[in-house]
Every structure is written in structure tokens, then in C-alpha cells.
Design a protein around this nucleic acid. Structure first.
Lengths: 111, 111
DNA sequence: AATATTCATCGTATATTTGCGATATAATTA
DNA sequence: TAATTATATCGCAAATATACGATGAATATT
């Protein structure tokens, strides 16, 4: 893409896009659902459920962690992951306001 | 990625991820906002507003069209784009239900 | 008919993502 | 101490995404 132009957009557009990217792969959607459901949140449990290698799952987990949607703490040999509810709340707000703002223009029938 | 594993996930996970991917670039978020606001929906107007070349904008428009979020009709030399409200509605439902389903597990304090 | 406008598409370059095996690290168990 | 377990990270290969200029097709203008 030569040079990325992402930074030239508005702050809230960039943020929304970033979060959207975080859930733009079914594996990460599945991981979020799995992490939310379980209490244990062990990486290995997710690997068992998904059709992906351990290293790949670990990578997806890292991406979700980087964007703040989950947090992980080491517990001995294991790693405990869980939803970062504060970030999750902020994100769902972002989405809702985007959808609401878009929908309020609904009457303008063009094509 | 060698071979994509996306198809091996659940239907609703795939759909949500697809929608998320559509808005995973600030340019496409900006385009959706612009198209929703204007009545004219002309491609050239979007190009004027965004920091991207015409061909790049056209490409982003195509992606949004492919996923069903907008529809476009040729009007003489010009192309009229507008939000596909039916698809938009369906998609925002998908997202809401994902958030709701996730949030109902909120009490399980792990880490 | 010649020219200009509007937009889609092609080709290309580069960047990023996805996926895996191999390896490293750190803790647990035998 | 040695072996095992759990996970992160590195390096590689292949696939996708991003961005643009050039070109083409279709309509509108002169």
C-alpha cells in the first residue's frame, strides 16, 4: 500500500476502525465469546475449541490484548485471560454512537 | 497465511467478522458517514473530502458495496451511492446481540 | 466529431495479516 | 535433576489489504 494514510483521518474514525479490526476475524470473535463464557480463561482451553494451532491462537490473543479488549495475567505456567469490561463498554458505545449517527440521516432517500 | 481457516468458524462469527472488516479502515468509516449525511452520494464528493486518490476511494466503495452496506446506481456519468438501510439494520443487530451475549457473562470474575 | 467529465478497473508496489512449526522460557511434577 | 506442561515469540511462507497512476468506458459538453 506504499504508505498508510490511516493517520490522516479523524480520531474517532480511527478508533472505531481499530476496534472493528480487532473483531474482523472469526477466530477473534470466537475467542472473545469463549473468554466471556468461561471463568478459567486458559489459553489451552481456547486452543482445544478452535481449529487453529497454539501459536496462532496466542497471536490472536495478543492482538485482542493490544487493543485492550482482553487482559491477561500469568498464573504459574498458565495464562489467565478475561474480558476487559471497561474497554468493552467503551467500544460498544463507539459502535452505538456510530450506528445512531448514521441512522439519523435515514430519511434522505437518494437511491 | 498459507490457507485461510475462516470458513471453519460458525456462521454468525463469520458474518460479524465480515461486517467488522468492512469498517476496519478509517476511510470506510468516513465514507459511510459521508454517504449517510449527503443526499447526492456522488463518488467525486467523497474524493474531495478524503485524503485519498479517486481510484482508492472507488476501491473502498466497492468493498462496502460487496458487503452490502451501501448500494450504488449509475446516473449518467456519475455514480450515486447510498446506505443500504436494510443491511445496515441487520448488521447493527448482529453487533448488538454479540455485545449483549458477551456482557451477560460479566459477573464471572477471573482476572 | 472532438473534448471533457466521472468513475471503474487493471497493474504494480509495498505493507500487513494469517498461519504454522520450531524454539525459548518458566513453572510443575516425577 | 530431569521430564513435562503451558505459553510466548521468532522466522518463514502465503494470502490480503492498501494506495496510486494509467487506462478504459460511458456520458455530457462544445
Amino acid at each position: 500500500m506504499a504508505v498508510s494514510k490511516k493517520a490522516e483521518f479523524k480520531e474517532d474514525e480511527i478508533m472505531l476502525a481499530e476496534f472493528a479490526k480487532a473483531i474482523s476475524h472469526p477466530a477473534r470473535v470466537a475467542i472473545l465469546k469463549e473468554v466471556a463464557q468461561r471463568k478459567s480463561c486458559i489459553c489451552g482451553e481456547i486452543v482445544e475449541v478452535l481449529p487453529l494451532a497454539q501459536s496462532t491462537v496466542s497471536q490472536h490473543l495478543k492482538e485482542l490484548k493490544d487493543v485492550g479488549l482482553i487482559s491477561g495475567t500469568v498464573e504459574g505456567v498458565k495464562s489467565c485471560y478475561c474480558i476487559n469490561w471497561a474497554a468493552f463498554e467503551k467500544i460498544s458505545q463507539l459502535f452505538k454512537s456510530f450506528i445512531d449517527k448514521t441512522q439519523c440521516c435515514k430519511d434522505s432517500g437518494c437511491c
